[in-house]
Design a protein around this nucleic acid. Structure first.
Lengths: 333, 333
DNA sequence: AACCAATTTGTTAGCGCTAACCATTATCTG
DNA sequence: CAGATAATGGTTAGCGCTAACAAATTGGTT
């Protein structure tokens, strides 16, 4: 920067101003400095800038997993906002584990991000303390809670899944099973509980829950399909934790010779891209995934810039999207 | 850090050593310092560290898009290596545009990453110059070239698609069409050229190419399916730029009442998770997506740490995986 | 005992920027 | 036209670490 300053015959401070608040610099001088920057091929050093200004210009995004379509739209939402407001997003994954989350957040905190966006509201005590002590704004997402760390983009997995269960019950399905997972992931648990509540309210049978090996591969859904077929009595509908599992189940059922929805209806969660294209098209809970990321990022950056001085909570809606995979079409009984 | 040092009754430098090269510090002292860190709740500042040590401990990953399953396994590969070798990965997307890539790389360079992993080998002149001048190690991936910027994890999209075309021709398909895209994305172009070369070599007809609106949504595949069905003469096989498009085409063909593969075979590229689960299971080119990311990251970090003093090129293999969607089963002619 | 090398800790001087303040000049006010 | 006000640029002193070197201590050797 000193080099550029010399080239333009000004002080380093003026160069710094041209780069950060050009409106404070006289136009002629500014042009001269900009020319000097081009001539010297100078590349601004944000590391030094971050240290001096105590602002890193980064926001951290904590996800259960990056290698899945589940969160990719939310990531895109965050990334788009980050770009327009010129901050850099850094991502890390927790593999659905609070312990890993704690490690990951501690490690990211060392980079002094200006804020955190976290998927989920369930954290270890240490994580919470660490974040609170650091004074960094935090936006939690994809779940609901009455005690957010700071801000929240709320989504009630419980309500959504309860609504889906109610919808199927109302359509006349009488043995509705659920495919979940054994992990301690809170969003998965809330969905399972929503299912149970929905069943109870409809006055149907006891909950029937199958567990998938993991929640990000169709293979896990396909595996569990065998158990579902073998179950006695056999369910007439299955609600899956998410669309990936649902697709795995749906395709495996078909492969086993069952007709969906005649022999068994299948519903998912998330309304992923492929849901509407499957044959039969998948009934699912439509979640505004992109919007969750977008709003979280906007709230976070407003917090960072002080435009939003207080923690802020908002809620995103969900919608039951009924498609062919649960249509009781030509069924008698 | 001074605070911790006082607590432990040592100098700041010793604290720094405990954090970065604990083996250089006497065990007793080290334990005392570690206790002091815990007591004070000290969080190491990597921003200051980066500035002082001229190493940021980050690697940049440049992708066409983050919101798609296409690269998510490669991202995972990079992320896993990054974690074990304790560097942070920062990602940015180019939207399949060299101009955006240039902007994105310039912007990332300001953060002084220790290295770059870039999907693709086609860049603007300015991008290349910038990277070379910066002296940062670069690994290009997912494409092949004889003039890499630095290191390369090579994949021949041309060869792979040519092999797929040859495979279909050999299976007896006689009118093989291709679904590509109109963008100037080099990997897409090479795949199209590979298809054309394969056709030519098989001595079949002229190339028949359809274009999808985008390459990351099934909807784009579904749209193009209508054109394919209307084409005259109608192809008996379609090779798609990737599995997402292929799935869109396959499902739309079925929805239009065609039988796959009897009326038309469909092949994809990438062997995404869903390919083997679709009905019929999708014939595709199996690419080691995770491995590409993994190897790129390993090579890059070896370059960063000086373990690998010279640019290094390696190649990953592909495999034609024939599944039901192109099986000429019960077809007469 | 004198010497050397290895081991361990401390000291100094930045890394490349910017916050906060000061100095200068132009512009306005009554 | 004095005096206040803005607009503009420069100075100084760090931000919180670490590279490089210096110093002190230990142990082994002759």
């Amino acid at each position: 920067m000193g080099d550029v300053a010399r080239h333009a015959g000004v002080s380093a401070m003026t160069v710094s101003r041209v780069l950060r608040q050009p409106e404070l610099v006289n136009k002629d001088l500014r042009l001269k400095v900009e020319a000097a920057i081009r001539e010297t091929g100078y590349i601004y050093n944000l590391v030094a800038s971050s240290l001096a200004s105590q602002r890193s210009g980064t926001i951290a995004l904590i996800l259960p997993t990056v290698a899945s379509s589940i969160f990719s739209d939310s990531v895109k939402g965050v990334a788009d906002v980050a770009r327009t407001r010129s901050v850099q997003m850094i991502m890390a994954e927790t593999n659905y584990s609070s312990a890993e989350e704690e490690k990951v957040i501690e490690s990211l905190l060392r980079r002094r991000p200006d804020g955190f966006i976290i998927v989920g509201v369930s954290h270890t005590r240490a994580t919470r303390t660490m974040l609170e002590k650091s004074g960094v704004p935090v936006v939690e997402t994809w779940d609901s809670t009455s005690t957010p760390i700071d801000s929240l983009v709320s989504l009630s997995n419980f309500d959504a899944m309860k609504a889906m269960t109610a919808s199927l019950a109302q359509q006349g399905f009488r043995r509705i099973a659920f495919v979940g997972t054994v992990t301690r992931d809170r969003r998965a648990q809330m969905r399972a509980k929503g299912y149970m509540a929905g069943l109870a309210e409809a006055g149907l049978h006891e909950a029937v829950i199958f567990n998938a090996r993991d929640v990000t591969s169709m293979g896990a859904g396909a595996e569990v399909a065998a158990q579902i077929i073998a179950a006695s009595p056999r369910p007439d509908a299955v609600i899956c934790l998410n669309d990936v599992i649902a697709a795995g189940v749906l395709l495996a059922l078909q492969r086993a010779g069952l007709h969906v929805p005649r022999d068994m209806a299948v519903a998912g969660f998330g309304d992923f891209d492929f849901a509407r294209h499957l044959i039969p098209a998948l009934t699912t809970v439509d979640i505004p995934r992109y919007e969750i990321g977008q709003r979280a990022a906007e709230i976070l950056l407003d917090r960072v810039e002080g435009k939003q001085p207080r923690p802020y909570t908002c809620e995103v809606s969900y919608r039951i999207t009924v498609r062919e995979s649960t249509e009781r079409c030509a069924r008698s009984k």
